[in-house]
Design a binder for these strands. Structure first.
Length: 356
DNA sequence: AACGCGGGGTT
DNA sequence: AACCCAGCGTT
């Protein structure tokens, strides 16, 4: 038995029953693949069901608004995925009359679809002979063949893609690709891999040389930036003052609260004295209550967040600010920390959340 | 080639 | 705290 036969047989007997594996519909597979980019299966699963229910085909997706998509995407992170999907859905609806393409060369041109995703959709949907290389495959290949080239260097990416191409089973590329990823997810795990029950342990360089902890090799990532975000909760009757974020920075085009960012750890009461605050809130602005700082961790940023309840007579609205009914908050896509704060605040009005 | 982009789970 | 997750787009 060769490598591919071993893992595909193992896969057939041990695979998880995942909803996107029961179809060859390119639209459905596209949906699942974008959701699963840098996202664990368990985390993406409920979003997959939700999106499929709201948008059962590409025409339905194309008809959605960006606000709709971002709201449904809320909590999943990497929101550009959702915005890129909308671009792609609208293009596909025009260009291919609502039939999602399943050929690599067409897929790779679409926004949000890179080498991995184009290979995944084309091999799963049309059995096209393109090898997938995701985080799982990097790990399996590095260990099995003893490849110590960093997986995130340009040279490494090329080498791993070539290696994946070399061992691809051309008789059933879709099955082979699924098996590679499943092996990485279930057996060849990052920590404490289950080498004892691995179908290809005989022949695995890392297993034979007790080197699973050294492989794969990955170049150091950049350091985390600290930011201090001071959010203001300003109400007017049953309305809340909200902010629509721009295209730069995190949480593009999503909704949060009026914000003043400071370069150093601030005293919330002094933030209100800053000229920027005085300009918009007036010098008579009064701090009612403060909670924070809360720490919100992103991959490359550590956010220290203050929430400041403010009362003021003369608010001067910035262009991106608008009042909205509390009832309408459920329609706005917000970063998790904002969503949780507002949910708690308006659920426990008399009991300020996160006070410390 | 390097960087930016979320949120959550595991070790 | 470090690392990882069915990566991709921009600079």
């Amino acid at each position: 038995m060769n490598f591919s036969n071993e893992i595909t047989q193992w896969y057939s007997n041990n695979k998880r029953d995942l909803p996107w594996r029961n179809t060859t519909d390119a639209y459905t597979i596209w949906l699942s693949e974008i959701i699963l980019q840098q996202t664990r299966v368990e985390q993406g699963m409920p979003y997959f069901y939700r999106f499929l229910e709201h948008y059962p085909n590409v025409a339905a997706f194309a008809a959605a608004s960006e606000d709709d998509i971002l709201k449904l995407w809320q909590g999943l992170g990497y929101y550009s995925r959702g915005r890129n999907m909308l671009t792609t859905a609208r293009l596909v609806n025009e260009l291919y009359k609502g039939t999602f393409p399943n050929q690599y060369e067409q897929l790779i041109k679409l926004k949000g679809i890179g080498e991995y995703t184009a290979a995944a959709i084309s091999s799963f949907s049309a059995n096209e002979a393109k090898a997938v290389v995701d985080g799982n495959v990097y790990r399996v290949l590095a260990r099995y063949f003893g490849i110590s080239e960093p997986i995130n260097s340009t040279k490494g990416k090329k080498l791993f893609q070539e290696t994946a191409n070399d061992i691809l089973n051309h008789d059933n590329p879709g099955l082979h690709n699924q098996a590679m990823m499943e092996l990485g997810a279930i057996i060849c795990k990052p920590k404490s891999p289950a080498c004892g029950i691995c179908p290809v342990n005989i022949g695995c360089h890392a297993f034979l040389n007790n080197a699973t902890t050294q492989l794969p090799v990955k170049l150091k990532t950049v350091k985390v930036r600290e930011r201090y975000l001071n959010y203001f909760l300003i109400t007017d009757g049953e309305k809340v003052l909200m902010n629509k974020r721009g295209m730069k920075d995190i949480w593009a085009n999503m909704y949060d609260l009026p914000l003043i960012e400071t370069s150093e750890k601030p005293d919330p009461y002094e933030v209100v004295q800053l000229s920027e605050a005085v300009e918009y809130f007036g010098s008579d602005a009064e701090v009612i209550e403060v909670s924070g700082p809360l720490t919100h961790i992103l991959t490359h940023q550590r956010l220290k967040v203050n929430f400041i309840i403010l009362k003021s007579k003369g608010i001067k609205l910035k262009q991106e600010w608008f009042y909205t009914e509390v009832e309408n908050l459920k329609n706005l896509a917000m970063p998790q920390i904002i969503f949780i704060f507002l949910t708690n605040f308006f659920t426990f009005k008399n009991n300020f959340p996160f006070s410390n």
